[in-house]
Design a protein around this nucleic acid. Structure first.
Lengths: 103, 103
DNA sequence: TTGATATATATCTTTACAGTTATATATCGG
DNA sequence: CCGATATATAACTGTAAAGATATATATCAA
């Protein structure tokens, strides 16, 4: 079911940076290298890991490879987060009530 | 601002297991040890890390320590996730439209 | 106080993984 | 075909961290 490796993959700051960069649209490896200021092998390695995790897609474009975000696995995060979201909403609500009482 | 160490802390499966256990209410260290089947030092160590990350709170209760979830840092996850959620919603919508067209 | 229980921490070992460097593969232009 | 460009991968190194074991600290009960 839930492939929880997604968490580990996203734990790496460089990989989140890559995903964030790809939010603005598909990009080649080298443009990502320029953007995040890491060596090309490092970027390729991280992209490989993101790809294995289903978080990005590749589309060959001549000699380049265009990477884009594939957000489906993030639904796991969302799902895991849900019961906790309820918790913190409750607490926000009771804080609000508390503030209302103080008025 | 955003303390992205939260991601790394949550990347560890045992720690997510601990948090999930605590969703059912505050618990002592030993009850968590029994629940997740790991050694007491391991559990204490992970709880320490969760505590440093602000993800759990401790309340001394005699010789025990009652741990409970403190969900505030998870708002970071939520925030980071947001632009991606938009992405996958868009894709769900276009899938829907596509299915509608096929009818 | 003493022994038992509950938890924390220190030390050690092993493993996983990020980054570097060097090299391989593939595709372009001429 | 050839050199240049774009990307992937292999091999190596250093480091961080998870789990095991042993021990320290604190609180209970008698």
């Amino acid at each position: 079911m839930l492939n929880m490796k997604t968490f580990a993959v996203l734990a790496e700051p460089t990989r989140r940076l890559l995903l964030d960069s790809l939010l603005e649209g598909a990009q080649s490896v080298n443009s990502l290298v320029d953007r995040i200021g890491m060596s090309q092998p490092v970027v390729s390695k991280h992209l490989r890991i993101l790809r294995d995790a289903g978080l990005v897609l590749v589309k060959p474009d001549g000699q380049r490879r265009l990477y884009s975000v594939s957000p489906a696995p993030l639904a796991e995060l969302e799902a895991w987060l849900e019961p906790y979201r309820k918790l913190w909403n409750e607490r926000l609500n009771s804080l609000e009530e508390h503030l209302d009482e103080m008025e």
